[in-house]
Computed example of a mutant assay.
Amino acid sequence: MEKETGSGAARPTMADVARELGVAKITVSRALSDSTTVKESTRRLIRETAERMGYRLNVSARNLRQQRSRTIAVVIEMAPSHDRLMSEPYPLSLLGGIMQILTGAGQNMVLTTLELFLQHPPSVDGVILLGQGVHDDAAGAIAQTGLPYVVWGAAHGPPERVVVGSDNHEGGRLAAAHLLAAGRRRLLFLGDAEHGEAEDRLAGFEAGLAGSDAVIVDRLTATFTVAAGRAAVAALLARGSDFDGVFAASDAIAMGAIEALQAAGRNVPGDVSVIGFDDSPGAAIFTPKLTTIRQNWAAGGELLAAKVLELVAGRASESHAMAVDLILRES
């Protein structure tokens, strides 16, 4: 909405009201439209602030906004970097599944990052968030917009939040069972457990080892990149740490771990067994071929799209944890 002029003074805009209260512009819009997606106390505060500031609602603009845009925003939480490209299987495989459903339903898709979405929110009917962020912060920020939304990740937020993801706890348990069967007893976990998915993978790993004579000698924080896995294991080896099995929270981390082990003269899997998580395309062509826990990103994308369309249509939807599989290869 543009600023209107009367006697020479510019009237405040919806963005000005949002800035005054430190909330999202979409929250102000919904509050002024008396939407029940914004709690009553917040609606009242926003209305009072808007009146105090002299804001006047442009009714025709509001009516245009309230029409369905037939557009869904796909918001990617990860920040693109040299080590973690947007062109990697995650998020592209998820996007393929999302597009399959949205285009079939006659819906447009806006692809953006979390930072850009929050700074310049597009006109959309709902949001698919890929990655819930550290301590669920990204999902919390999307929830504040008041739009219907679904999240790819782990069900760590409020019970009403709709989350699609893999059974990460079961994946961790499968990794533990595999390493135990391979005779490995001094184990290492690599991943950032401040992310809900990695946290669940670690919890499942620990549960799978319970009652055995195996121990986790270290839990190292590593972001979801080859470089992070390589650096973490190289530093551990430099300190003389003794371990014979590695569970990495992603295939990229596992590949970096293997590179560090090989550079130090350790044989994989002769000296150390390594298992990843994802079954990314590179896992089958890496040397040695990577044993991993497979999650079906394409099917996950289809579920995300179907569920956000249910919410936009005002229908109920539920979270879904997809089954995972152990893929045995050479590592």
Rank of each mutant, 00 (worst) to 15 (best):
A50Y: 06
A50R: 00
A50G: 09
A50F: 08
E51R: 15
E51A: 15
E51I: 05
E51K: 15
R52F: 01
R52A: 13
R52D: 05
R52Y: 08
M53V: 09
M53P: 11
M53F: 02
M53I: 08
G54N: 05
Y55L: 06
Y55R: 13
Y55M: 11
Y55F: 15
R56K: 15
R56L: 14
R56D: 05
L57V: 08
L57P: 02
L57T: 11
L57A: 13
L57K: 12
L57N: 09
N58Y: 00
N58T: 08
N58D: 15
N58L: 04
V59H: 10
V59P: 06
V59I: 12
V59C: 10
V59F: 02
V59Y: 00
S60K: 06
S60M: 08
S60D: 06
S60A: 04
A61Y: 00
A61N: 08
A61E: 09
A61S: 08
A61T: 06
A61G: 01
R62N: 07
R62H: 06
R62E: 10
R62Y: 02
N63V: 07
N63Q: 14
N63Y: 01
L64H: 00
L64A: 03
L64F: 03
R65F: 04
R65P: 00
R65Q: 05
Q66Y: 01
Q66A: 09
Q66P: 02
Q66M: 07
Q67S: 10
Q67D: 05
Q67R: 15
Q67K: 09
R68W: 04
S69G: 01
S69Q: 09
S69T: 13
R70M: 10
R70W: 09
R70P: 02
R70V: 01
T71A: 15
T71N: 13
I72C: 08
I72M: 05
I72Y: 02
A73S: 11
A73K: 09
A73G: 01
A73Y: 00
V74T: 15
V74E: 13
V74C: 14
V75T: 07
V75D: 11
V75G: 10
V75M: 04
V75C: 05
I76E: 03
I76T: 14
I76Q: 13
I76C: 13
I76F: 14
E77W: 04
E77Y: 09
E77Q: 11
E77K: 12
M78H: 11
M78R: 12
M78D: 12
M78C: 10
M78G: 07
A79Q: 15
A79I: 14
A79P: 07
P80D: 02
P80M: 03
P80V: 03
P80N: 09
